[in-house]
């Protein structure tokens, strides 16, 4: 009941005594756990710090290892942030365990879904490997637009798994492939930007 708490309206800056002060009771005597202030503030500050950490690891050049390593690091930090939000902001550690069970089950399903799908996608070429240089004609279309707004339609896609240089972007591979150079040059005859510009640049 509200008036049970009248005595502590202003001075609750410190960690409150959970047992006595911060449990409201309703008429049937069931406990309402009052959200404490200080832990939540600490969690919020922690989240801000972790955000800064994510930015630092992702943007500082000396921290760059490789695409996949940096993605993994970023996702681990994100998971930790998500865990903090779920445990404290979402009251999981205060609530009944069944709610945590629901979260764990859904996480399990997500992980299952993505990993098994990726296992398949990643091993598609293990047996059905075709010789390098074969490009499927017809089905695949890649669209590029040059500076004057003309639309270039290139056919054929390279999978990085078929390639000797999986680090290169797909079009780089296509361009470097002697089998394909002739076709590519023909379709880019008036395109001066078919060079190796890797920088990207901000529009």
């Amino acid at each position: 009941m509200a008036h049970d708490h009248d005595h502590q309206t202003e001075n609750e800056g410190l960690m409150p005594n959970l047992e006595h002060d911060e449990h409201a009771h309703d008429d049937h005597g069931h406990h309402v756990h009052v959200t404490p202030f200080m832990p939540m503030l600490l969690v919020f500050v922690g989240l801000l710090c972790l955000t800064a950490l994510t930015l630092w690891t992702a943007k500082a050049e000396y921290f760059y290892v490789s695409n996949s390593v940096n993605l993994t690091v970023a996702l681990i930090i994100a998971s930790f942030k998500g865990l903090l939000v779920a445990a404290f902001f979402m009251h999981l550690i205060y609530d009944k365990a069944i709610n945590t069970v629901v979260v764990v089950a859904s996480m399990f399903a997500v992980v299952l879904f993505i990993t098994i799908t990726m296992i398949d996608i990643g091993t598609q070429d293990m047996v059905d490997k075709t010789e390098k240089g074969e490009i499927a004609v017809g089905g695949s279309v890649q669209i590029q637009v040059d500076e004057s707004g003309n639309r270039q339609v290139t056919r054929g896609v390279y999978s990085p798994f078929w390639s000797d240089n999986p680090g290169l972007s797909i079009v780089e591979q296509a361009k470097n492939d002697p089998e394909n150079v002739k076709k590519y040059n023909k379709s880019h005859a008036h395109d001066d930007h078919s060079g190796d510009d890797h920088s990207g640049g901000d529009h």
Partner: peptide, 28 residues
């Protein structure tokens, strides 16, 4: 919470699509 589980799984489709793109087209 059950509804939130469905929300997580709803977004898992995007995460899976992202993982796929990252894996097959990671050059670009």
């Amino acid at each position: 919470w059950l509804f939130l589980a469905t929300e997580v799984l709803l977004f898992s489709g995007f995460f899976c699509a992202y993982a796929w793109g990252r894996m097959t087209h990671y050059g670009t």
